[in-house]
Design a protein around this nucleic acid. Structure first.
Lengths: 353, 353
DNA sequence: TTGAAAGCGTTACCAT
DNA sequence: ATGGTAACGCTTTCAA
């Protein structure tokens, strides 16, 4: 049906092999022949068959990327960074959304792997690395993104979530908050690291964290902002509601602000709110939201570079162990924590980020 | 390197062909043999090589989806719907973002096509269909999504943009707006259709639209909400600023609201604002935004079904012409147009959608 | 119920 | 500088 190399070769009265080489700019082939081939390729609308090429080279030029939620701007932005860098080298990123469902994630990975990926990037919603081990053993380079597992050696690219928790908490303390609550994320590494950063910082400053100040956002079904709404209701029903909240992410924080406004609570005076991720929409919401920037696009780009390092490494150089790329974010202050004090540089990013 | 059928066959002392058939549940093979094969597959961690399969079957089980911007929630949601339906039938969607750059779009399509897609879905940022014609000629089913071209016959799935413009405009008129402006989108079909729906409706109601009330949002570089901010500044500098604005999309509308709040303009009393797309974030912004819902997820699902119809059609049945699937949206009223009148059902969706 | 042989479109190797 | 041949892993066709 489609045009193939043989057609071009016959057309030009040369061998198929010559065409193959000409197409890949093999130095063997004379300039004149290469031009003749190029011309016919244009005319006939020839496209190389990557499946066939992949079969013989053993490289698919395909990189898989499994995300928990394509709709989440963080992962969409990571995907853009990842694709942009890999595209330049001829790689194609195929994306799959697991909808935060560990079982679906496994199925999707299995399906992806059948395409003989040259590398697989996973922001896993698994609670353990069990399901990922077979991949690593299969020899396909595996890069964990955003979320890692203890006791599982693998490449990792993500943010310093412990430090993000610390930065956010210190900011709240700096603007005068004394009773700070945390709305926890899922049981993945960013969730527990941000929590730990929060707790350690509070302890360091001699501030108490009553257990009811740690709210576990329900998982799965409900939208993130709905978690925030529910969490604030719970917190406000306490005898002593908090005067500051560090939320696992910006979507939850948006819900908190939505509910706070509905309850007539003054943000940031009565209640300061900070999120994490620094989504672009943060400046549009009712009370523009302070956040810790995560450099999502850069995370994607770094993952891409790591992959290129791995796949382009000479044969012998492979077993160099696993690599961890941990990016530092930075504080972005907006109205939700702007009490007019020393840190009030609205919308200005502070720190290394 | 990796496990292949031959390994399983040798292992079991049967032929490679038997394994192949067993794996695909071919009725030829006895249950006992199939079970033995299945067991070994598990043990050895065999994965079929789809590139090899594709080479012989001529079907890649890959569907391409080219979007102008992966970060845009509309396309992310379409992608989710598309993937969800196709995944059930064993198809995989590979997504590529053109960043609204027609040239990059061509390159990406070319690259995708080399993977021998079974179908290609494109929300094109081209201004003409020129670049898409070769694809159609190649025999790969082409589905235009969201954006179509005049004088180019192709399958299409999208919203009724003319009607969206009409619905939004009639709503503004209904709540009492007299001087209604429109912030235009890019020069693609949704942009011109929504504009036409707006103009026709205004004329029908005997309302004037001075030329300076049609603002062309700049293209490309800048973020959409920035367009909205600039556009409102321009409109407010007029002798008679509008009392209602219909924005091409919700992101532009968000910018308008942001700037209106900054200027101390009362939304919706002094200025009513409505967008299009009904993004989930609309309820979170400063003044919750009214919009015309686009049923983005459903658009994706319908595109998937159309593809399945095409690829699963028996050989002879192919040349059935092109199909157009046009979905109707519905009005969603929120605070940005809620003047306490008859249409004030906040956050409630009205209409067929 | 099973299997041998041919072939899918390409690249790698070695010869010319 | 050019080309013949084998191989990549699988499915299809046909024969046993």
């Amino acid at each position: 049906m489609a045009v193939k190399m043989k057609d071009i070769a016959d057309d030009l009265g040369i061998s198929l092999v010559t065409v193959s080489k000409a197409l890949r700019n093999h130095p063997d082939i004379s300039l004149k022949t290469r031009e003749r081939v190029a011309a016919r390729v244009q005319e006939l609308g020839y496209r190389p068959n990557l499946a066939a090429r992949s079969l013989v080279t053993g490289r698919s030029m395909l990189v898989g990327f499994v995300v928990p939620d394509l709709m989440h701007p963080f992962f969409a932005d990571v995907a853009k960074g990842l694709s942009a860098v890999l595209r330049e080298k001829g790689y194609f990123v195929i994306i799959s959304s697991s909808e935060e469902d560990p079982e679906l994630e496994c199925k999707e990975i299995e399906h992806m792997m059948a395409h003989r990926l040259d590398a697989l990037v996973v922001a896993s919603s698994q609670s353990s690395a069990e399901a990922l081990a077979p991949i690593q053993q299969s020899g396909t380079p595996l890069i964990l993104l955003d979320r890692y597992f203890d006791n599982f050696e693998a490449h990792f690219v993500g943010s310093d979530d412990y430090n993000a928790g610390k930065i956010a908490t210190e900011h709240l303390i700096e603007i005068g908050c004394k009773r700070i609550a945390h709305i926890q994320g899922p049981d993945t590494s960013p969730g527990s690291r941000r929590l730990k950063g929060f707790l350690d910082t509070m302890r360091k400053h001699g501030l108490e964290v009553p257990p009811e100040y740690i709210i576990k956002a329900g998982s799965g079904d409900v939208e993130g902002d709905e978690h925030g709404i529910q969490a604030l209701r719970t917190l406000q029903s306490l005898k002593r509601p908090p005067d500051g909240i560090f939320c696992f992410n910006d979507v939850i924080a948006s819900g908190v602000i939505l509910e706070a406004v509905a309850q007539g609570i003054d943000v940031p005076k009565t209640l300061a709110v900070i999120g994490c991720g620094n989504l672009h929409s943060n400046r549009l919401i009712r009370v523009p939201l302070s956040s810790v920037d995560q450099r999502s696009n850069e995370i994607g780009r770094r993952a891409a570079k790591l992959i290129l390092d791995i796949v382009q490494a000479p044969e012998g150089t492979k077993p160099a162990g696993t690599k961890r790329v941990v990016l530092q974010g930075g504080l972005v202050v907006r109205a939700s924590t702007d009490r007019g004090g020393i840190s009030s540089r609205p919308g200005k990013k502070i720190g290394k980020g």
